[in-house]
Simulated assay, not measured.
Amino acid sequence: MSSRIFAALLRDTDGSPATEGESTASDDPEVRTDGGAVVDGADDPSSSTDTADASVITRLRRSRFLESLPFWGPPGLLVFFFVYGAISWNFLISLTGWEGLGAPDYSSLSTAAYTELLSDASFIAAFRNTIALLVVFTALSLVVGLFLAILVDQQIRFENTFRTIYLLPMSLSFVVTAIFWSWMYNPRIGLINVALRGVGLDALTQAWLSDPRFKLAAIIFALMWQFSGYCMVVYLAGLRAIPHDQYEAARIDGASTVRLYRRVIIPQLRASTMSAAVVLVVFALKAFDFLFVLFGVNPGSSADILSVMMFRVAFDRLQWAYGSAVAMVLFLMALSVIGPYLYLQYRRGEL
Rank of each mutant, 00 (worst) to 15 (best):
M1K: 09
S2L: 13
I5H: 11
F6E: 09
A8D: 12
D12A: 13
T13S: 10
D14W: 00
T19D: 07
A25F: 05
A25M: 03
D27G: 09
D28L: 13
V31I: 14
R32E: 08
R32A: 11
G35W: 11
V38N: 10
V38W: 09
G41N: 12
D44M: 02
P45S: 01
S47Q: 06
T51D: 07
T51L: 07
D53I: 11
D53T: 06
A54E: 14
S55G: 00
V56A: 05
R59N: 02
R59Q: 09
L66D: 00
F71P: 00
P74W: 02
Y84M: 12
S88K: 04
S88A: 15
L92K: 07
S94H: 02
L95M: 12
G97S: 14
L101A: 10
P104D: 03
S110H: 10
A112K: 04
L117W: 12
L117G: 11
L118K: 15
A121V: 13
S122R: 15
A126P: 10
F127R: 00
N129Q: 11
L133I: 08
L133K: 07
V135D: 05
F137H: 01
F147T: 11
L148M: 12
L148N: 07
L151R: 04
L151F: 11
Q155F: 04
F158N: 08
F158S: 14
E159N: 12
F162G: 01
I165L: 15
I165V: 15
Y166K: 00
L167F: 15
L168T: 06
V175A: 10
V175Y: 05
V176M: 11
V176D: 04
I179T: 15
F180N: 04
N186S: 13
I189S: 09
I189A: 10
G190E: 02
L191S: 10
V199L: 08
V199R: 01
A203K: 05
L204H: 08
Q206T: 08
A207R: 10
A207P: 00
P212L: 05
F214K: 01
K215Y: 03
A222F: 07
M224H: 13
C231N: 15
A237E: 06
L239H: 05
R240N: 07
D245T: 13
Q246F: 03
Q246M: 07
Y247V: 02
E248I: 01
E248V: 00
I252S: 08
I252D: 11
G254A: 04
R259G: 06
R262H: 08
V264P: 06
Q268I: 08
A271M: 11
T273K: 12
M274C: 03
M274F: 10
S275V: 12
A277I: 04
V282Y: 05
K286I: 01
F288I: 07
F292K: 06
F292S: 08
L294Q: 13
L294C: 08
F295H: 12
F295C: 10
V297S: 12
S301T: 14
S302P: 01
S302G: 02
A303R: 05
D304K: 04
I305P: 01
L306M: 07
M310F: 07
V313I: 13
A314Y: 02
L318G: 03
L318Q: 13
Q319D: 09
A321I: 00
Y322E: 04
M328Y: 06
A334G: 15
L335K: 05
V337M: 11
V337P: 06
P340G: 03
L342N: 03
Y343W: 14
Y346K: 14
R348N: 08
E350R: 12
